[in-house]
Design a protein around this nucleic acid. Structure first.
Ligand SMILES: [Mn+2]
Ligand SMILES: [Mn+2]
Ligand SMILES: [Mn+2]
Ligand SMILES: [Mn+2]
Lengths: 227, 227
DNA sequence: GAGTTTATTTAGGGATACCTAAAATTTTTT
DNA sequence: AAAAAATTTTAGGTATCCCTAAATAAACTC
């Protein structure tokens, strides 16, 4: 039947599939299992269920992973909009730090009403990005266009502005904000060491050199300044 | 073991038991079943489970219903504090009407962190009562003292101030606010009709007579003005 | 205090929603 | 075409919450 009730867990599956398919064609069972911290067999079971819903919210093909159907994508964007608006709201209105918002938003995103969503969106002036620079889908679920590259692909001489930092790791977020690396920060790449993929860089306005390993630089997304 | 994780359903049981035992010695199985909309046998099963938790959160005696233990009362007050702070927050900060806050709060109360609780309490200036006049337990879970009588016990000639209105029925709340009957409204009882228990009364400052039946007047709580 | 009524418990199920380990299968790599 | 890797199936499990019908216990009434 149409309009199946969706559980929190299903919403988390949809978010994960959305995330993976933003960089891959389809999301594999193992990728999903890894990301959600469950066994692959659990994922297979769930995917088959999601493909049986009418209308199907995923396109599942045995041994070739899943992609979201248009219906599934809408539902994923709905949850993502909730999550990112809530993060913004916690930071702007309740004074949370940027490393404290993700966990709370992960719980609240499944529970708030459309009314709540609309009211915080209005209170925040319909923001297009959350505290980590993640784009917030509009009310009609259009994702704001944005093109960024991972910092790890930058090379010496290039200058770039930080657009986005992955928000799952609070410790990393605290570390980066201590270094002054947050969305809108201007960076200059000074050195690249191919052996360990470390990047040495400077925050605009400071002389200090900062060295970051690939574990970190792959979680930061930037836009290169035109030379 | 200590520190069992409590489900949302259990939190709802605790709230219900707290509510019933505010006017009765113990809460009977059937009262709880009625209030939660489940079968009496389901309640019995749940109560036995709650009494088995270490430490027990209810004192359950076959055929004599339950009362909360100190531990259970703490947990109930914790949820009630969440609920009422959230209601206040929705009304004061997000601009909800007083009849719209209850449902949203009923979902959010189970999900917010202590951090969230503290931040909205601070943002609201540590309120002692919610939009319906319900007392909000303090951070250390003391219920603010308040003594009120149901409006239905008032008689002609008495004057009283509205302290509290039961918040479960949004339609009634809308009706009452149209009549100007909200917490802090001063009322004067004009007439009592013993046959149907109707009360005729005036809102201070208005000439208009308002007639309310017992279904409504038993949901409004007041403090009598000293004559 | 015996019978009636009401409240509660027992006994037995069912649904949902999720999970895992190990064996079997399919796909990919070499 | 083997071997390796990824995926699926099988078989079974956990936890939570809820239900009805019938038996039992307690409370109430006369
Ligand atoms: Mn929404
Ligand atoms: Mn974010
Ligand atoms: Mn609390
Ligand atoms: Mn209330």
């Amino acid at each position: 039947m149409m309009d199946e009730k969706i559980t929190h867990t299903v919403e988390d599956y949809l978010k994960t599939i959305y995330d993976i398919t933003s960089t891959h064609d389809r999301a594999s069972t193992n990728q999903i299992a890894e990301s959600l911290g469950v066994a692959p067999a659990s994922v297979t079971g769930m995917l088959k269920k999601l493909a049986e819903i009418d209308p199907p919210i995923v396109d599942y093909q045995r041994h070739r992973g899943v992609a979201l159907t248009p219906e599934g994508e809408k539902m994923a964007l709905e949850v993502i909009r909730h999550h990112r608006l809530i993060e913004m709201f916690l930071q702007q209105i309740l004074g949370y730090k940027w490393d404290e918002v993700h966990g709370e938003a992960d719980r609240l995103e499944h529970v708030i009403s459309e009314e709540f969503e609309e009211r915080i969106a209005r209170a925040l002036g319909d923001p297009s990005h959350d505290p980590h620079g993640d784009p917030i889908p509009s009310k009609d679920l259009q994702m704001p266009p944005s093109s960024f590259l991972p910092l790890c692909e930058m090379r010496p001489g290039q200058e770039a502005v930080v657009l986005r930092v992955r928000d799952e790791n609070p410790e990393m977020l605290r570390y980066l904000s201590e270094l002054g690396i947050i969305p809108n920060t201007d960076l200059k790449i000074v050195e690249y060491s191919p052996l360990d993929d470390n990047l040495s860089l400077q925050v605009s306005g400071s002389e200090k050199r900062i060295v970051l390993g690939p574990r970190i630089t792959s979680e930061i997304y930037v836009k290169v300044n035109p030379a």
